[in-house]
């Protein structure tokens, strides 16, 4: 079978599922963030695959650029929050962090 749109979509579906699994099961906040990055990457693969097989219109690629920009902003803010949580609670285990303040 020739490599086409379906192949790229299935790769992105598996990547999405792996990211979702990391977000659900991992206890470490940093690993949850890595799962979110995997999910964003899988969404980007979809955008670019549809852009190519939908007539090479470039709109999908523009959307992918915005996804990358927001992923960078998200990673910076989330890591700042994680570092702050670590300073206060001395742990990054998302199960143990249940209070808004000490």
């Amino acid at each position: 079978m020739e490599v086409g749109l379906t192949h790229f979509l299935i790769v992105s579906a598996i990547l999405f599922s792996l990211g979702l699994f990391a977000v659900i099961t991992r206890r470490n906040a940093i690993l949850v963030l890595m799962g979110v990055e995997l999910i964003l990457n899988s969404a980007n693969i979809n955008f670019i695959a549809f852009a190519k097989y939908g007539g090479m219109k470039l709109d999908g690629q523009a959307a992918a650029v915005f996804v990358i920009i927001l992923a960078a902003a998200e990673a910076a803010v989330a890591l700042a929050i994680v570092l702050n949580i670590y300073q206060r609670f001395k742990t990054v285990n998302v199960d143990e962090i249940s209070a808004m303040k000490e």
Binding site: F8, V11, E37, N41, N44, I45, I48, A49, A51, K52, M56, Q61, A64, V65, I68, A71, A72
Partner: peptide, 19 residues
């Protein structure tokens, strides 16, 4: 690599730089 295969050269370089 997948981006390059999908003819998205600019996105591929951006991905490398930013991610």
């Amino acid at each position: 690599g997948i981006y390059v295969l999908l003819n998205a050269d600019f996105i591929a370089v951006t991905q490398l730089l930013i991610y």
